[in-house]
């Protein structure tokens, strides 16, 4: 039976008078794909930013257990150490690639910390000494593995900005995976993808899970969420309103009410509500 990888307890995030996330607690199990859904403005991205260190939570704890029984508090780590020590990687809702660098370079930047350690404070590597060459070779091999997995290997030497949108999304996932995370946080990975690309994304995410990395994703595309998630958490107005398997969520009256609540034609979440209703 899978155990808890990420435990969020009583997480609260306030911006001035606005409480974006209010006493939120949830667990993500090891080896699972956990989805966080909710209407726009529910606080999903804020939760992500807290977990990945972009915001310091007002109160509450975020703990990660790299091996069962251990616990590391992510909210106590400085921002950059979340990836390095906490081994949590993320992607962004609006893609953030290093556009002027090649696809391969993007993936090598992701392995910065390991490579930097092999350079002997840069001095040895400048002189061409030390084990840097071997380290770089290993880094390129890992990059190649993820380029293969995301079918970007043919574009390895092209600048990232020249890739089509769908490929940029995949590259961002590949880049995050190159940091060797135990938990990958994806912020709307299927946004702007066509049905075929969404299908390929599903397969990629399942492969990542099979490789032993757990996933946490925010997603609006219910086709992706319902098909691949093991566990779903529903947020509304900064609070958890439901928590369960896709089947449970689909038939949960509170969730349907949250989505359908102010459901008029202008509601940006109306399509989701329809999907939910149809799924029922």
């Amino acid at each position: 039976m899978s155990d808890t990888l990420l435990a969020v307890t009583n997480l609260t995030m306030r911006f001035g008078g606005l409480t974006a996330v209010n006493a939120l607690s949830f667990d993500a199990k090891r080896g699972n794909i956990t989805a966080v859904i909710g209407p726009n403005g529910a606080g999903k991205t804020t939760v992500f930013n807290c977990i990945t260190g972009f915001y310091k939570p007002t109160s509450g704890n975020i703990a990660i257990a790299h091996t069962p029984g251990t616990s590391l508090l992510l909210d106590k780590l400085p921002g950059h150490a979340i990836t390095k020590k906490g081994r949590v990687a993320r992607t962004f809702q609006n893609i953030r690639l290093f556009g002027g660098m090649t696809v391969l370079e993007n993936l090598l930047v992701a392995q910065h910390n390991e490579l930097q350690a092999a350079t002997g404070f840069g001095v040895l590597a400048i002189l061409g000494l030390g084990k840097y060459r071997a380290a770089e070779k290993a880094a390129i091999e890992r990059a190649k593995y993820w380029l293969d997995a995301t079918s970007l290997i043919d574009r390895a030497d092209d600048p990232a900005a020249s890739l089509p949108y769908g490929a940029q999304r995949r590259l961002e996932i590949a880049r995050a995976m190159c940091t060797n995370p135990v938990l990958l946080c994806l912020d709307e990975p299927a946004a702007g993808l066509n049905p075929r690309e969404s299908q390929a994304l599903n397969e990629l995410l399942l492969k990542i899970r099979a490789d032993g990395c757990s996933l946490l994703l925010i997603e609006h595309d219910m086709g992706v969420v319902m098909k691949i998630s093991d566990h779903i958490i529903v947020l509304d107005h900064g609070k958890k309103i439901a928590d369960g398997t896709p089947a449970e969520i689909r038939s949960n009256p509170t969730v349907i009410a949250a989505y359908l609540g102010e459901g008029d034609d202008d509601d940006p979440d109306a399509p989701i509500a329809e999907t939910l209703a149809a799924a029922q």
């Binding site: 921002g79 979340i82 290093f98 090598l108 490579l115 930097q116 590597a125 840097y132």
Partner: peptide, 27 residues
């Protein structure tokens, strides 16, 4: 030499996107 090394690449990555750099664990 530095350009072809992690430090130089991190500099260029910093120029391209600081937030993405941070998300990759670059100090």
């Amino acid at each position: 030499r530095l350009r072809r090394q992690p430090l130089g690449r991190a500099w260029e990555a910093l120029r391209e996107d600081e937030i993405a750099c941070r998300s990759l664990g670059i100090n």
